[in-house]
Design a protein around this nucleic acid. Structure first.
Lengths: 134, 134
DNA sequence: ATTCAAATGCAACAATGATGCAAATATAGA
DNA sequence: TCTATATTTGCATCATTGTTGCATTTGAAT
């Protein structure tokens, strides 16, 4: 699915900023921070516009926020777009990248009585395959 | 172990701010935010002092940061103090609290070749036992 | 009690989250 | 294709938070 089609199917106006953000995220192997996305984006948008675009895309479950730390926030396509199952994310302390670990699926945790979950976040921190070998 | 003893055993000076922060965290059932801790603290400390105290306590693995969202950051005692195993944390969308789910232990994930982990974070979001029944 | 390294409080700055409002723009309907 | 309108954008502005430098104060070792 192309960025434009994603916007249309979510009843969102197709603006170049939104389209660009999705485009950049789709074309990256790793999850990207707001700044990394801005740098790779063609247009030059106002900080507020950018901020609100992320908010909109997130609210519509097009992109997904991966909170590694309060200072390290990365974005990836939401599972509803990629059709992936819930999976862990890996943060490498060395190269500072976040990779999806598709092979590490998150099984539904058995919660204590009275609890019900709507969302799970599993972040593993350490050294990635690339940095291990260098 | 009392707050003072924790500081001493970590070769940290016992200042009232550090002592107070540990005291407050220890006496709470749920993980607390920086503001919640400040409100429950006797003394009135400068924002910077507060910030640096958290940093020190975190670096010395006395407290542990639970980042639910970039705007929702809670603190709890570190496992090295509580002698608990790695466990999931539950964030309730309704009452906005973070509880330790001691029963939901985190098993060492089997990572792809070349990856090695040093830390895991498992946050489950949803509705807690208290809010479910009200 | 004295001394000195460490912690504190204050000023200051950067980055980020958030909102109000006028101007620009995307899309549905003519 | 053109027009009307609701949405989005850019800008100004403000709040909050993370961070640092520096003079003053304080903890604890002697």
């Amino acid at each position: 699915m192309k960025p434009v089609d994603i916007l249309i199917s979510h009843n969102l106006k197709r603006t170049s900023c939104r389209e660009g953000i999705i485009e950049v995220i789709m074309s990256s192997k790793t999850a990207l921070s707001e700044n990394e996305i801005r740098d790779r984006l063609a247009g030059n948008y106002d900080r507020t516009t950018f901020y609100r675009s992320f908010k909109t895309l997130e609210e519509n479950k097009i992109i997904h926020k991966i909170v590694v730390d309060n200072q390290v926030i990365k974005y990836a396509l939401d599972n509803s777009i990629t059709h992936k199952k819930d999976h862990a994310h890996f943060y490498c302390h060395v190269c500072k990248t976040v990779k999806c670990l598709d092979s590490v699926e998150i099984e539904k945790p058995s919660l204590p009585l009275g609890f019900s979950s709507s969302e799970v976040e599993f972040v593993i921190k350490g050294t990635c395959n690339f940095c291990q070998n260098s």
